[in-house]
Design a protein around this nucleic acid. Structure first.
Lengths: 348, 348
DNA sequence: ACGCAGTGCGTTAGCGCTAACATTCATGCA
DNA sequence: TGCATGAATGTTAGCGCTAACGCACTGCGT
């Protein structure tokens, strides 16, 4: 007997591979590949049989290999600044879901200051990212947008209120949502309705205010008062103090986000007011705070995860189209909002 | 003239590749690879020159290709249940940072109910993950731990208070941290200190309570009162009501997390008490709530991102060691906590 | 009878990178 | 002089997967 046929110098790295499936099915790996991707011409019979085997063997294609072979792994950058932690985590989960499906890479950079934006952008360039996702509030930062444009990186702005053509964007109709919320308050019988604005630098904040104003105007009403905030809990406290210590109190306060709405409730409680008995308070975003506050907030639900998924999909499509030569035009998507009625607002 | 030499049937997929660098440096790609990985025998001169070129060309190795060729891309699963959104986002960022460095994959599954855990675990098996990360509170779920062990998946528990040997874990010293916080309150002159517990099912919660008790005992004191909570804002409200409406009020309340501390402050305000004038309130976790509450919370800072990074590193090392044949033993790491003094606690 | 289009699959050549072995060229030393 | 020694670099063979093309075979019109 001669020497045993020693072959495996390179160890097996992954569990089941496409080759295993192909072998078991008695076809070439290409056929299996075609089944996985649901394309190409494969007879229904073969397709079914292979599908069966895939399930049986518990085979899951390696996104890395797939990316390498086809699209070339795309690198997506994500710039964030800690807004509401709850928003970010939902957003990240959405992004990850989509990214892990395709095997692409995600690179995170925090930028809390304008200088940090500069640093992050050059970092992204170094890392060779192919596109960048900008969740709020960065999606409306001129600086970030400019820098990225200069670096030639496609950008998808999420939840931006800008109306620029030629920019990839996933939007929420802030205006319509604010109108809907205001109409809800009106329907409850409120006539003295005040508003706490978000950060005036953000266009989405302006759209929310506009929606509020127009809904009132359509009912022949004027805002009872408009207090300036900047989306922070802190600013909500101050706005609430101004509103509630005034001579004539509103019967309802619409805050441009949940953080501020929560702050308003806190001050109302300190003034001995019952929510919603003496004062209705509503928010916007349906963040975690909306349900951890007491009473729970009536608010506008934004499908954050869904928007994140859409953003990645849009960006990926754009990047690949560009790589394939065609200058892919910009498109934008609109996500649906939903009015969530909870306990913080009641009929007058 | 004959036909032009048409070659590029397959398009260029990535920007600069290792081959470009090698060509420019006049060496083989292996040498460049060695420089990148900082291993192998390469003369200092060559190493320096190539390093230079890499920087110049702005080359970044493709994690996907790297993984494919070497370790085989590792698939890491992450089970989560929406605890504090702020915690999750910090945690995710830490995880992502580490994962994107290595080009591995991350698969997320939400499990809010026991049944969801079953579903998630079998999903993970289907997806062929090599290891699983369990952030709190799942890190202490017997069910999740058992199921995963049965499936043969290595697990790293983060911020668990379990002391099991043979389990990968990244821990915070909850006991010591709670003692430190209690001593802080004592140093401020408080003698009537009450505690709001976390979810009794979580061992970390028990450790925090134990730290509190022991610190008092060391000072010859007894807890003024101990109210049961479960980490939720809601439970904090109820605990606070019990504590503050009692005959003899405490002068300080230590809540086992920030959510409940925030709830305590809210109730205190409603009872007309000033924080920290009439009542000191402290939390634990240093979540976003700690700074969005008013006044800002004195709390214990947990290096969440860092712990997440450590967890991934530990898990990856374990998985690779296992794959290489050796049965890698379990190890655990301890992360540092820090007392953050803000405005919600003052001297008596 | 011939061409030609359309199916259903297989073959080949990589994607960007690394493990394992191979080669080259100076040394050292008996 | 001969040759093991080892340092610096190159070659080859993949990792798991897909794009692009190839090839046999069927059906159909003329």
């Amino acid at each position: 007997m001669s020497r045993a046929p020693e072959k495996p110098q390179r160890r097996r790295l992954q569990g089941v591979t496409i080759a295993d499936v192909a072998a078991r099915a008695g076809v070439s790996i290409m056929t299996v590949s075609r089944v996985i991707n649901g394309e190409g011409r494969v007879s229904d019979e073969t397709r079914a049989r292979i599908g069966e085997i895939i399930r049986e063997m518990n085979y899951a294609p390696s996104p890395a290999a797939r990316g390498l072979a086809s699209a070339g792994v795309t690198r997506i950058g994500l710039l964030y600044t800690n807004p509401s932690g709850a928003y970010l985590s939902e957003f990240l989960i959405g992004v990850m879901d989509e990214i892990s499906r395709t095997g692409d890479h995600l690179l995170l950079h925090r930028c809390d200051s304008p200088e940090a934006i500069d640093a992050a952008v050059s970092k992204l360039a170094e890392e060779g990212v192919d596109g960048v996702v900008l969740p709020p509030p960065l999606c409306d930062s001129e600086r970030a947008l400019d820098l990225l444009a200069k670096a030639g990186k496609p950008v998808v702005a999420v939840a931006t209120a800008r109306e620029d053509e030629g920019v990839l964007a996933v939007r929420l109709d802030d205006y319509a949502a604010a109108r809907t919320m205001t109409e809800h308050l009106l329907a409850l019988g409120h006539r003295k309705v005040a508003f706490v604005t978000g950060d005036a630098a953000q266009l989405a904040a302006q759209r929310r205010l506009a929606g509020f104003r127009d809904a009132l105007a359509a009912a022949g009403l004027e805002p009872h008062a408009v207090a300036e905030g900047d989306y922070s809990y802190r600013s909500g406290i101050e706005a609430a103090i101004g509103l509630l210590d005034a001579d004539e109190r509103p019967t309802a306060i619409f805050a441009a986000n949940d953080d501020m709405a929560s702050a308003v409730m806190s001050i109302a409680h300190r003034r001995g007011l019952d929510v919603p008995g003496d004062l209705s308070v509503v928010g916007f975003d349906d963040s975690l705070l909306a349900v951890t506050s007491w009473p729970e907030l009536t608010t506008i639900h934004q499908p954050i995860g869904e928007m994140a998924r859409l953003a990645i999909e849009l960006l990926l499509r754009h990047v690949r189209a560009r790589r394939a030569g065609g200058e892919a035009g910009a498109s934008s998507l609109q996500a649906d909002y939903r009015l969530v009625v909870r306990e913080s607002a009641a009929a007058l």
